[in-house]
């Protein structure tokens, strides 16, 4: 029992350390907030008119859930650089020499990123409201939508952590941390309906997790069928278990 509470306390101490860093280096948070808001405004006003005509209803209600998913993913990938920077500094050596939980260092990072993501998501919803976004399925569903989006970011953060631990060198982690996310975000229903894509791409776009989560979140913000929920929960559990396991293994193995 005390092992468990100690482990939890270790994770929270590391989480707090990362949050202090965010407070002291606000650029880390500002850019990950400004970028999705800029996308929100650009897409809404630039593509909004064109896309509305293809018959998707109110574009902002379509767009915001997708951009929220994009922002939690982009927020999470910073962990690759963050973790590899920490790994190449001496601080990890000290942490390893302490009697702390082996997973505290990486879990604390993921938890801090998740909290930051929640903060960014709430700001995006606020800005969305100002330009016409509405939750159309009630407050409980709105809450579920936010929890789903942030949990999705949590699951994907573990991929970034694994990359950061694998690459080790911060300069290499920069591109390595980013590349894999683009096809997932753009070949999805985040910005445009999947039906507008070439058929061969639709197969991928329809089934990949980013599309599924976007559909699921939309079903809780705008209403409609929750068909995508089960696949999303499966995707999230598989990714979390797989990449958390991989990260812990990589962390222990690295010397």
């Amino acid at each position: 029992m005390t092992d468990f509470t100690n482990g939890l306390s270790d994770i929270l101490v590391i989480t707090q350390r990362n949050l202090i860093r965010y407070r002291r280096l606000p650029q880390l948070v500002i850019f990950s907030t400004v970028q999705p808001i800029m996308f929100l405004l650009l897409f809404n006003y630039v593509f909004g008119g064109a896309i509305q005509q293809t018959g998707t209803g109110n574009y902002i209600n379509f767009l915001l859930p997708g951009l929220i998913i994009q922002s939690v993913l982009f927020g999470g990938i910073q962990a690759s650089v963050g973790i590899s920077t920490d790994m190449s500094s001496g601080i990890v050596d000290r942490l390893r020499s302490l009697p702390i939980s082996r997973v505290a260092f990486i879990s604390g990072r993921v938890l801090a990123d998740t909290i930051r993501n929640l903060f960014v998501v709430l700001i995006m919803i606020g800005v969305g409201f100002l330009i016409g976004f509405r939750f159309e399925a009630g407050i409980v569903n709105a809450f579920i939508a936010v929890v789903l989006a942030v949990s999705f970011g949590f699951a994907f953060s573990w991929i970034s952590v694994a990359i950061g631990l694998f690459v080790k060198n911060p300069e290499a982690a920069q591109p390595a941390g980013f590349i894999w996310i683009f096809p997932l975000v753009f070949a999805s229903s985040v910005f445009v309906p999947v039906q507008t894509m070439p058929e061969w791409l639709q197969v991928f776009a329809r089934n990949q997790p980013v599309t599924k989560i976007t559909q699921a979140v939309r079903s809780f913000t705008a209403g409609g069928s929750h068909d995508a929920l089960i696949p999303v929960l499966i995707w999230m559990s598989v990714i979390t278990v797989l990449f958390m396991g991989l990260s812990v293994w990589l962390y222990r193995r690295s010397q």
């Binding site: 270790d10 101490v13 350390r17 860093r21 002291r24 280096l25 001496g90 601080i91 302490l98």
Partner: peptide, 19 residues
Amino acid sequence: AVDETLTGRENLEMFARLY
């Protein structure tokens, strides 16, 4: 092996908490 963005005191408190 200390965190550059934290203050000296925050670093020490963090390590104490980790003990």
